[in-house]
Design a protein around this nucleic acid. Structure first.
Lengths: 154, 154
DNA sequence: TGACTCATGTCAATATTCTGACATACATTG
DNA sequence: CAATGTATGTCAGAATATTGACATGAGTCA
């Protein structure tokens, strides 16, 4: 019936709040990207390529937190739409360095603007100092959860 | 080749860091819950029921950020394992209030301990004050992204 | 040189999740 | 009382992501 009858300690769990924030951001991003005909993974791929041209499929997969297979499907879709290009033959190993096409750069520009607006909305209630703090704290959490213990006790 | 040659502004994007933190937490939770034979959605379901007994399928789905259909499958799995019970007939509307069994409570206790350890590890580099700040900031972000604009400009 | 290891791209099969849809039960309103 | 609206549980289909596996190319080391 009501949405906050008994506020259990669930709302106080850092993990739950993190998941909640992630879900809210993802939903907002989906809504912002839908008019552009892009999904969140597709946008992530474009954004990665815009910032680091020449990334391979496996590198893009790691950057977008998906498997190589999933990223491969994303890449094919974007390639079929003419937003990026991959050489037919690998210049060095087996990795195929991917590049954005001019159309891809245009799409990325529009998508990046839309996503940035969502981020602004998300961070609106926070002061610039708090925004930096939030980012740094999250980064610290990521480092603390890294499989290879950064500060090995042994 | 290297993993942080040119640190683009990607690492500075709040959304990306949030996604990164969520992925790291999820991976760590999966690893912690695997020995107990639980997946993350299953644990979320148990935790919700432990804190708010009698939740219905739809309410659990909203709390775990999945669809009713997905939560229904989770519930069936846990029910088949004897961790929770649902009445065969709805006492009031169509909602079936779910309850943990003693076995479910035991499983929840073990899982909760494991997950709490992961959270502790994640928050280890942060002071208690910063932990509170992080939680409050994330909650503020969630509120700012809520579909119903809290401070309607119109 | 030859054997070994590692990373990458790709294929196939499986799991998981979501979208769409429908019937039921209660509350609200005329 | 009857009609409408909302919420829930459930079914079926499609879309998506994942796990497992394999061949290829490059580097390493005896």
């Amino acid at each position: 019936m009501s949405q906050e009858e008994t506020v259990g300690p669930l709302e106080e769990s850092p993990g739950y709040v993190l998941k909640q924030a992630h879900a809210a951001l993802r939903t907002a991003m989906e809504a912002a990207l839908r008019p552009l005909g892009l999904t969140v993974p597709q946008y992530a791929c474009l954004e990665l390529l815009g910032q680091r041209p020449g990334l391979s499929n496996a590198e893009l997969a790691r950057g977008a937190f998906v498997t190589r297979q999933s990223m491969n499907l994303v890449l094919r879709g974007l390639q079929d739409r003419g937003l990026l290009t991959r050489p037919e033959q690998a210049p060095h190993g087996r990795a195929l360095p991917t590049q954005l096409t001019p159309a891809g750069r245009d799409q990325l520009r529009a998508a990046s603007t839309a996503v940035r607006a969502v981020e602004q909305q998300m961070l609106a209630p926070l002061s610039p100092a708090d925004q930096r703090r939030l980012r740094d704290h999250l980064a610290a959490c990521v480092a603390a959860l890294a499989p290879t213990t950064p500060a090995a006790e042994d």
